[in-house]
Design a protein around this nucleic acid. Structure first.
Length: 645
RNA sequence: GCCGGAGUAGCUCAGUGGUAGAGCAAUCGCCUCGUAAGUGAUAGGCCAGGGGUUCGACUCCCCUCUCCGGCUCCA
């Protein structure tokens, strides 16, 4: 029976049964056949030289596509493993998948790899690639595979874990062979090693087998592969760009904050300019919270351990908490890792009626979490940080509206900071560890989903990834160079109302349990500011910039006028600085630009005579001379307006 | 917490067992200048901290702290 293959353009073409993908590509065009690395039939990727035996939607995969790059990187990982097993007798290999922008492979070796090892391995890979070894697909039974890989314990474990019921037609597993090297693999692969245009090893690290910290720690090598050197260069440049934006570098450079070693890991101090930035953000946070009907509350940094016992934190969260301190009469106190129990106590401070609800309590609450020493990462993962936290107590009837309001708030907040690309995770009930009745989970998940649908944010369902106390929405943003960051979170909580016995009196004069919504809009202010620094590459929009205008007098005799200009700008509410150093104009401008000040004003003889300024805006190479001071002030005031609350 | 790498002036980095170096920044002069680095001088260091080896340690070894790349975890 002939094969009927439907090409991407919709044309259906018949081929004899058993035609290979390469032959089909050849029949379409020799250029395509040369570029082809695999084919796709009804959504299944297949090796180029495998005979095709079923009809369906057909397309040729080239290195232009994501699938093509995945295959390239997967094959590169094989070559990496081949090189390592060659060079390090006695080593064995675990898994080596393609990942975003590259691939890795995990090995067990007697000595961890060094940077020199990477060079050696890369050289060996280059040899394998230049030998153009064909990748040959080998099908074998499970028993044969167990035999073939008997020297490689991780492969054996993988084969043993293949569910026989999932493998149709007699427990077949596949492997790929090139030269003497065989790796267990579903495929497909490039036709041969010579089809790898460019590959580069990047770094090594430790990695637990199966991601389980109780199991063997393997040595991982990360690499990247592209269809051309140009693409590789572009990728390396992207990495460099990301490095330039690193908030750990830019923060101290712009004098925003620092991490003095004397304080300890994960603890930052905010310098005056960073403090200014933070204050602007906090003020905006308060204004928007009030606009959305939140009341501000305050709570202390410590509380008796008894409180954390009641809240469940000592049962579920103790390993992230700092140890207790014994105070009067052996009373133990704990530093807070979260603000929720305090807000619960505020709710509980008096009897509540349905008329009091919804009750929305907000706080910029400083919390401390004992993070494992290896995970601390600048402001993005600190041990002390401030949450723009809130807890909303409401009835079931109000739940839908409240979730919508919170989601609206979160999106408004993120948009205010220039984020436009959002993706949410909707995390649902965990399989085992959870509290609360199923009915509450169902209704909450439903409302969370409805809220997401209503505002039209793309989301994926993270099955079973909810907190033990309730389902949640985590909002991610994409920054200016496409990286994804988690900021906001909206979480339902069935646990605390239960544990603290929260009630309100319903219309029928009966006690009901309120629902509780935790919400952080920025998440942690520290992390959020870290993300902003990277997003804006330190060049903040004017409303956020700690210094908005740098004023540069051309010569000493213009300093008085420069001061007068600064005074006028400050009167208009702008943050302006005069550069009084005895440097050249060029040098002073350079300083303002390297500090990423949004506007530079230069004043000289003409300006003194005519009440004008020279104006230059960040990001523009040109300047405008002779702008009347009033006009410049108005223009700057206009462009430094903060978003409305 | 685990695996690997690193810590020298405020910053970026040289310095392979024999008294510590550069550029930028800083300070003080000179220059008075119209859009990305004018010029001279000065000052600045318990070479992360502690222990050890050695006649002698920034250099070699051990421990601790901090940072970096990952794993695990997470706002």
């Amino acid at each position: 029976m002939p094969l009927d293959l439907r090409y991407p353009d919709g044309k259906v073409v018949s081929h004899p049964d058993g035609t290979t993908g390469r032959e089909v590509a050849q029949s379409i065009g020799p250029g395509l056949a040369r570029a082809a690395v695999a084919v796709e039939i009804d959504g299944h990727l297949r090796d180029l030289d495998l005979p095709i035996s079923e009809s369906g939607d057909f397309s040729v995969i080239t290195l232009d596509s994501d699938h093509g790059l995945d295959i390239l990187r997967h094959s590169s990982a094989h070559v990496l493993a081949q090189a390592v097993l060659d060079l390090y007798p006695g080593s064995t290999f675990a898994i080596g998948p393609p990942i975003e922008d590259g691939f890795y492979y995990d090995f067990e070796v007697s000595e961890p790899f060094t940077p020199d090892d990477l060079d050696r391995i890369e050289q060996r890979m280059a040899e394998i690639i230049s030998e153009d070894q064909p990748f040959v697909r080998v099908a074998m039974s499970r028993d044969e595979a167990l035999e073939a890989f008997s020297d490689h314990k991780f492969k054996v474990e993988i084969i043993e874990n293949v569910d026989p019921s999932e493998v149709s037609g007699g427990e077949e597993v596949t492997a790929y062979r090139n030269n003497g090297f065989v790796d267990l693999c579903r495929g497909p692969h490039l036709p041969s090693t010579g089809r790898i245009p460019t590959v580069k090893l990047l770094r090594t690290s430790g990695a637990y087998w199966r991601g389980d910290e109780n199991r063997e720690q393997l040595q991982r090598i990360y690499g990247t592969a592209w269809q051309s050197n140009k693409d590789l260069e572009a990728y390396l440049q992207r990495l460099e760009e990301a490095e330039k934006r690193d908030h750990r570098r830019l923060g101290p450079e712009l004098d925003l904050y620092s991490f003095p070693a004397e304080l300890g890991s994960g603890l930052a101090v905010w310098h005056p300019k960073g403090g200014q930035l933070r204050k602007i953000i906090e003020d905006h946070s308060r204004a928007v919270h009030e606009r959305y009907g939140f009341d501000f509350v305050f709570s202390p940094h410590l509380a008796k351990s008894e409180l954390w016992k009641t809240s469940g934190h000592l049962d579920f969260y103790a390993e992230s908490m700092y140890p207790g301190m014994e105070l009067d009469n052996d009373q133990e106190y704990r530093v807070k890792p979260m603000n929720c129990p305090f807000h619960v106590l505020i709710y509980k401070s008096q009897g509540r009626s349905y008329r009091d609800l919804p009750m929305r309590l907000g706080e910029l609450g400083g919390v401390y979490r004992y993070e494992m020493s290896g995970v601390v990462h600048g402001l993005l993962r600190a041990r002390g940080f401030t949450q723009d936290d809130s807890h909303t107590f409401c009835t079931e009837d109000q739940l839908e509206g409240e979730l919508h309001l919170h989601l609206d708030f979160v999106l408004k907040w993120l948009k205010d900071f220039g984020f436009t690309d959002f993706e949410a995770d909707l995390s649902t009930k965990p399989e085992e560890k959870y509290v609360g009745e199923d009915a509450r989970w169902e209704v909450s998940e439903k409302y969370l989903q409805q809220a997401l649908d209503a505002v039209g944010v793309p989301y994926r369902i993270a099955e079973g990834e909810g907190a033990f106390y309730g389902p949640k929405i985590d909002m991610h943003v994409r920054d200016a160079i496409g990286r994804r960051w988690q900021c906001s979170t909206i979480q339902l909580d069935f646990n605390l109302p239960e544990r603290f016995g929260l009630e309100y009196t319903a219309a029928g004069n009966v006690g009901e349990r309120p629902y509780m919504i935790h919400c952080a809009k920025a998440g942690s202010l520290e992390r959020f500011i870290g993300v902003l620094v990277e997003h804006y590459a330190g060049a903040f929009p004017m409303w956020l910039s700690p210094v908005q205008v740098s004023i540069v007098p051309v010569a000493d005799r213009h300093e008085e006028y420069a001061d007068a200009v600064a005074g006028r700008l400050r009167d208009a509410g702008l943050r302006a600085e005069v550069d009084l150093s005895s440097e050249t104009v060029g040098d002073k401008i350079r300083r303002a630009l390297t500090h990423k000040h949004p506007a530079v004003i230069v004043v000289g003889d003409d300006d003194v005579a005519n009440s004008t300024v020279g104006l230059r805006l960040y990001g523009e190479d040109t300047d405008t001379r002779g702008v009347p001071l009033i006009e410049a002030t108005n223009q700057l005031v206009e462009s430094s307006k903060p978003p409305s609350a």
